[in-house]
Amino acid sequence: MLPGPGARKEKNVDIVVLLKQVPATESLIQVADDGVSIKTEELKWVINPYDEFAVEEALRIREAQGGSVTVLSVGTDKAVEAIRTALAMGADTGVLVNDPAALGKGALATARVLAAAVKQIPFDLVIAGQRAVDADQFQVGPAVAEYLRIPNVSMVIKTELLDGSIRCHRTIEGGTVVVESPLPMLFTTQRGLNEPRYASLPGIMKAKKKPLETKTLADFGLDAGALEGPTARIRALSPPAERGGGRIIEGESAAEKAAALVKALHEEAKVI
């Protein structure tokens, strides 16, 4: 049957966003007395900035296509705050895996838990930050895709939904590459993908009434013993060296310096 006039609505896309709560980037990080962790008492906690891009992209896709956005996180009670913020931005439902056995076991164990949780949610698309800005491991997103046996595209700066597939622009050294993947798939975000919205004030009021489920490993048929321990252990933490002076771009001509600067801004600073 042909769609009626003006009735053309793209296919609904159900999206799961993987979200981690991390210390605010402007926090003063201090090494704890044990030497292998950081002091957390006075930190302000926020949504991982790359995950904020993921929430925003999910909302934009839903607004254009219809569908749903579920925010999924592994964390403690504290992480409710981050999920509520995502719900206030406009996500539909939240799921928090809050189980001591799921914490502190490293990126692959986290990915296994997240993958098990995603399997219980109908989805066409999973969006994750390229990395969490706390441990900077870059592992969880791709590992979840691997556990789910779905394609993964990382470092995405632009997306285009097609019929049953998605076109992703991802950054590579010196440029961008455009790839297409069938759905369902997972992609991770890169700076430049979008500008995350503020949670609107009415959104904040409504967020409290949105469903937020708390789950434990048992809900996924996982038992703590099945999760591998961390594959790497932190032996010592130390603050970074004091920052040195700025860098002067060398070059024969203004044009040459500008080219070198653009290259540095694109490839190193990744701001353009």
């Binding site: 509520r84 206030a88 503020y198 004030l201 904040i204 009021m205």
Partner: peptide, 9 residues
């Protein structure tokens, strides 16, 4: 709720 809202502002 209000404090969250104020924080956003």
């Amino acid at each position: 709720d209000f404090l969250r809202l104020k924080q956003q502002v």
